[in-house]
Every structure is written in C-alpha cells, then in structure tokens.
Computed example of a mutant assay.
Amino acid sequence: MDIAFLLGLLLAFGSLYAAITIEHASLAALFLPGPMVLVFGGTIAVGIASATIRDALSAVRALPRAVKGDRRTAAAMIDEVVVYAEKARTEGLLSLEQLVPDAADPFIKQSLQSIADGTDADELRTVLEDAISSTAARNRTAAKFFSTLGGYAPTVGIIGTVVSLTHVLEQLDNPDTLGPMIASAFVATLWGLLSANFLWLPIGNRLQRLGELELERMTLVMEGMLAVQAGAPPHHVGERLQALVADAPKAKTERPAPQLVEAA
C-alpha cells in the first residue's frame, strides 16, 4: 500500500488540530451538524448534478485505489515482458497462451492472448491503443469528479455562512447571543475550504497521477509485447523498454559480453 495519501491526510488534519489547540479554540464548536450536512451533502449533490450517475459511481469505485495506490510500476514490468520474449523466442508465439491464466495484469493477459491468437502487428497495436484510450478516459472521469467537488465545496460553504448570518440578523435584539451565532455561521465556510483542500482536491489530483502512471505502464507493456510478437531478442526488448522509463532498473536479460581472443 502507498501510504502517501493516508500520511498526507494525517499530517494535514494533525496540523489543523495543533492550530486549534495552540489558539485554545473549541474543537467541538467546529463539528456542527447543520453546516457539515450542508457542505458535504450539498457539494456531493451538485457534483452529481454536474455529471452523470455513471460518472459518480465510477468515482466511488475509484476511491479504494486512491487510498491503496498502485505498487505496479512501468519499471517493474520490464523483467516480466523480457520473460515472455524469452519464451516466445525459444518455444514460439503459440507457447504464450500457456502463460495467459498466470498473468496478473489484465492488459498483459489481453496482449498475450491476442498474440497467441495470431493477431497481426497493426491490428494488435490498434487493439491495445484502444484499451489504453478507454482506461485513460475512465481515469480522467474519476479524477475530474473529485476535482469538481473541490471547486464547489468553498462556494457551498459560503452559502451556508450566508444562511446562518441571515438568521443572526434576525436576533439583533438579543446581543448576548450574537457572538456565538456569528462564530457558528463561519463554520460552514471553514468546512467548505477544509473539505476542498484536505479531501476533494487531493483525491482528484492523486487519481490523476495514478492514472498517468497506469498509462505509462500500459504503454511500456504495449511496446514490449509488440516487440515480442516481432521476434525481437530478449535483450533487445529489455534495452528498448529501459529506454522508455527513466528510472528503470537494468533488465535481467543482458547482451552477452564479447569474447576476447588473444593473438597467437
């Protein structure tokens, strides 16, 4: 699990708690049901209204991914693709069908099955590029939904504050209660800003970044599997994929060192 998300939220809310404690403010005064219901409920409601039900469900399904992250990297896929190149080189392309059930990555599984089925290079590239485009669109939808919530939340918070201040103006004949009521009125604005910058925007940006990493990995796999289908030597496949990833480790399959022949 990538702890960046949970660690970041813990530090953010910890900083908020520290600020409240240093200022000797009341933590309970911030957890008012009315403003919180309006901010969170209203933000999610207008977010759904600005998209579709399918978009909202897609965003909800992406939440576990935002929390867990994705430990699969493009660099980690190089050795796996090189293994496929070795098997195809020694046993033929049809032998790759035996590896389809053991492939954990759905994209690799699709690539292996297509190669084993005899799909030609141009058609295979088209099929894999379509899969990449579909994944990119799905990732953008989820990330955009939460980023949209981050844009709505502060405004919804201001609406809650205006509603509360309207009620405050009705109580001008009771000055003893004006102070607490005004303080409570700004809680909605606080939760609007807090939810936007501590939750919605970080989730949206994180999903966007995870989507970029996934597309990078899928692109590397596509280029590698096309090289496998073309019958490229395993060490050439490894070198080709290493060139596509800046932080890629050296592949296990290496070009054999030239033999030095001593002069007689």
Rank of each mutant, 00 (worst) to 15 (best):
T253D: 00
P35C: 01
L193Q: 01
L16T: 15
H236G: 10
D117I: 14
K87W: 05
D70S: 06
V82N: 00
D79S: 02
A18K: 05
K144G: 01
V82G: 00
R209K: 13
V81M: 03
F40Y: 10
A66Y: 09
N205D: 10
D247F: 03
G160D: 07
A12G: 07
R138Y: 03
Q229A: 06
I44M: 00
D105E: 06
D55T: 10
V39D: 01
P233S: 00
L172V: 14
L16H: 04
F5Y: 11
E254P: 15
T166A: 05
T90D: 07
A51Q: 02
G231I: 14
D176S: 11
G69A: 04
A76K: 10
G118T: 13
T21Y: 09
T135C: 10
P33S: 00
I53D: 03
S26Q: 05
V168E: 02
E212A: 02
I108W: 04
L241T: 06
Q110Y: 12
K109A: 08
A243M: 08
Q98K: 06
Q98F: 03
F145Q: 00
L201P: 11
I48V: 14
H236E: 13
T126C: 09
V163P: 14
G151K: 09
A188I: 09
L201H: 10
S114I: 15
A59S: 13
A131P: 15
L6W: 04
R255K: 08
H167C: 07
M218H: 11
E23A: 07
A59D: 07
A243D: 04
L199W: 11
M36H: 12
V163F: 07
L241C: 02
A56R: 00
S184F: 11
L193K: 01
A121Q: 11
E97Y: 06
R72I: 15
L6C: 04
D176K: 11
S111G: 04
V187I: 15
E80C: 12
A49P: 09
K144V: 12
P33H: 01
A196G: 06
E239K: 12
M218W: 13
Q171I: 14
K252T: 14
K109T: 12
N174C: 12
P33V: 07
